[in-house]
Amino acid sequence: MAEQVALSRTQVCGILREELFQGDAFHQSDTHIFIIMGASGDLAKKKIYPTIWWLFRDGLLPENTFIVGYARSRLTVADIRKQSEPFFKATPEEKLKLEDFFARNSYVAGQYDDAASYQRLNSHMNALHLGSQANRLFYLALPPTVYEAVTKNIHESCMSQIGWNRIIVEKPFGRDLQSSDRLSNHISSLFREDQIYRIDHYLGKEMVQNLMVLRFANRIFGPIWNRDNIACVILTFKEPFGTEGRGGYFDEFGIIRDVMQNHLLQMLCLVAMEKPASTNSDDVRDEKVKVLKCISEVQANNVVLGQYVGNPDGEGEATKGYLDDPTVPRGSTTATFAAVVLYVENERWDGVPFILRCGKALNERKAEVRLQFHDVAGDIFHQQCKRNELVIRVQPNEAVYTKMMTKKPGMFFNPEESELDLTYGNRYKNVKLPDAYERLILDVFCGSQMHFVRSDELREAWRIFTPLLHQIELEKPKPIPYIYGSRGPTEADELMKRVGFQYEGTYKWVNP
């Protein structure tokens, strides 16, 4: 592979701008107003304001973009700056750019259920340069409990009458099928589907988006991507930290609602779906819905739930269990780990287990898709061969690698495990991989909904998990304890083995 010439960040961002501006969906010269509902909250200060700053800094926003914060707290732009700027990672050389960014910011205080507050917000936006005809993007960085009041008031008082209007809704989209349907029906009564952007930030990850290209742009994968060759698929999300004093919020939802029903299920769809007619948003989402419709409700015998306990040999936070978090209700049975087996009941995947695993306070930070292939028929190497695996590593250190057998150097035919490896950090030294939120917010500006969740996708996802969630809430089974920093409950490994996964433990990928 030829040595790549190092590029400056300015040059890299210039390439990104060229890609972005050559499309006809990006209205570079139009006025846009980006409204952050819930501007005083954690999500706004840690993710949304920093993301908008990065896009502005790199010249990736339309030229005439204004940012308006809205929340109940009586704040000023200076207050917003004070709480969000520490997350910007701005350099001293960017000081003038930073001043320009905050000059485009404003803030309006108001209630979430008060019509007069929204009329005041609308008047404020109209007073901005060309504000009355601007395109408006409303980001709901809010708890779902206020979605209905907020969307109703936005629709009645704050819509642009000339430009387009788009609304970005953060997960969780309800707690179960019934609450999700209620919320979807409410929002759909106010906005068209092409105006609604239900954001799952995992769909903005580079390697998640790469799944489609790997599958449908490489001839070698087509013939082997089926039940005849693939023994099982494992989708993993692991965090090495616990709730760390923020367990009160987590306890309301648990690990299945927080990660599995959305992030992991979306990745499953991209692995299992048929080739779409095109890369058009609805063509892709149509195929994802077909996959979900082929999955039956989760069966309790295919589920393992766990909850982390303190590690007596650990240090600091590792010595504390979930129930030691003062914000967690006493005696909570909320799971911090889950392993679930699903089956896609169609011709391509009949009988292939899709194993979804996620948890907190585990032994490493990792998100990946792992396809394990069947054993080689007619073994001539005296059971020395391990199964081939194709691994798409989402985070950290984005990579695609194939675990395969090669001859060990020497005189004899002794096979050993090795890999074919594409590590993004080595291959793409001159490429700026956008943060997931950067990519998705740019998608909203461009009107691309491919990486957002459609209402029928959402409904099918909740259909699969709601009976299990209701059973857990009714019966309150005690989750299996696992030690902070471990791989999780051993019962999860036993479940995976029972459905056909072979864990060798003899080879570990190392970032080159």
Rank of each mutant, 00 (worst) to 15 (best):
N229L: 05
Q11L: 05
F66S: 08
I234W: 04
V77E: 13
I168V: 12
R74A: 11
K46G: 06
I196Q: 04
L128P: 10
I162R: 11
I154C: 07
I256K: 02
I36W: 03
Q133R: 12
I230D: 00
F237L: 11
L142R: 04
L43C: 00
G163R: 14
S179W: 03
F241R: 06
R215Q: 02
W54V: 12
E170N: 01
N218G: 04
I187H: 07
S123M: 13
L7P: 09
I48W: 03
L130G: 10
Q28C: 12
L142F: 01
A71I: 01
E85N: 07
G163Y: 10
E63C: 04
G204V: 01
I220A: 14
I36V: 09
R72Y: 00
Q195N: 07
K152R: 15
R219W: 05
S29H: 11
G245D: 12
D228T: 07
L190V: 07
G23K: 15
K238Y: 01
R215F: 01
T145Q: 11
Y147Q: 03
A6M: 15
R192Q: 13
L61R: 00
R72L: 03
G242H: 03
F237E: 04
A217I: 05
Q133N: 12
F21N: 07
T151P: 05
Q178K: 12
R227S: 11
G38W: 01
M212W: 02
Q161C: 15
P92V: 09
R17A: 15
K152D: 07
L130I: 07
T151M: 12
E18Q: 11
F56R: 02
F221E: 01
I33K: 04
R192T: 14
I196N: 01
Q11F: 14
L128R: 13
A149W: 09
D42K: 03
E85L: 07
D228K: 05
F88W: 04
Y118K: 00
N105Q: 14
S84C: 05
Q195Y: 06
N185L: 08
I36L: 07
I199K: 03
A90I: 07
T91N: 11
K205S: 03
D30H: 12
G222F: 08
M125Y: 06
G254Q: 05
R104E: 02
S188C: 10
S188F: 09
Y107N: 08
K238W: 01
S117K: 08
I256S: 06
R136A: 08
M207V: 05
R74P: 10
S8R: 14
F216D: 02
N229Q: 08
S123K: 15
T243R: 03
F21V: 05
R81T: 12
T65K: 02
Y107T: 10
H129C: 10
P240E: 09
M159T: 12
G163P: 05
E94G: 04
S106T: 14
S184V: 13
M1R: 06
A90T: 12
P92N: 15
S160T: 14
L190F: 11
T145N: 15
M37H: 09
H32P: 08
G163L: 06
T91F: 08
V68D: 02
M37F: 11
D251G: 08
G163F: 10
H124Q: 11
E170A: 01
A78H: 15
N229F: 06
I35Y: 03
D24Q: 03
P144T: 02
R246S: 02
D42H: 05
T151C: 10
S184Q: 13
Y249K: 00
L140R: 01
G204T: 03
Q178V: 13
V169K: 00
Q28M: 04
F173R: 01
R192Y: 09
N218P: 00
G204K: 00
L235K: 02
H155V: 07
G38N: 02
S157L: 05
L16R: 11
S184A: 12
D30Q: 14
G59A: 09
K171M: 00
K97S: 11
H124S: 07
K95P: 03
I220R: 00
L203S: 01
S123R: 13
N153W: 05
R17I: 08
Q119A: 09
F21P: 10
A115P: 12
D251Q: 03
Y112C: 08
A25R: 14
L61I: 11
F66R: 08
P92Q: 14
L128I: 14
I167E: 00
S189P: 13
E19T: 15
Y49L: 13
A39E: 00
D24W: 02
N210M: 04
S29I: 09
R81C: 14
Q178N: 15
S73Y: 04
V146G: 10
D251C: 05
G110V: 01
F56V: 04
E94S: 03
F88L: 08
Y49I: 06
L43T: 00
Q22K: 06
E206L: 10
Q133W: 07
P223T: 08
R9K: 12
E193M: 03
A149Q: 13
F241W: 11
M207W: 03
F173Y: 13
R136H: 12
T76E: 11
S84P: 00
Y118H: 09
S184W: 06
G23S: 06
I256P: 02
F21M: 12
F216Y: 04
A231D: 09
R175D: 08
P86L: 08
L96M: 10
K205F: 00
V68W: 00
N105M: 12
N153T: 12
P240W: 10
Y197L: 03
W54F: 09
A25D: 12
I80E: 02
S73A: 12
P50N: 09
A149R: 15
A71D: 02
D58Q: 10
K47F: 10
S189Y: 07
S117N: 12
V208E: 01
H201I: 01
L130Y: 11
G242L: 02
S160A: 11
I220E: 01
G69I: 00
P223N: 15
H27G: 13
S84D: 08
N226V: 03
T236S: 12
A25T: 15
W225V: 04
I234H: 12
R166W: 00
I154Q: 00
V208P: 05
L75Y: 15
S40W: 03
D200W: 01
M207C: 07
Q119F: 09
D176A: 03
L190C: 12
F87G: 07
I52V: 15
F102E: 05
Q133I: 13
M212V: 05
R74F: 14
R198S: 03
S188T: 08
T151E: 04
L177G: 10
L203T: 05
L177C: 05
N185D: 15
V169L: 14
R215H: 03
D30E: 10
Q22S: 06
V169Q: 03
K82W: 08
W225L: 02
Y112H: 06
L235D: 00
Q195C: 15
A25E: 12
K82F: 11
N105C: 13
N165Y: 11
F241T: 05
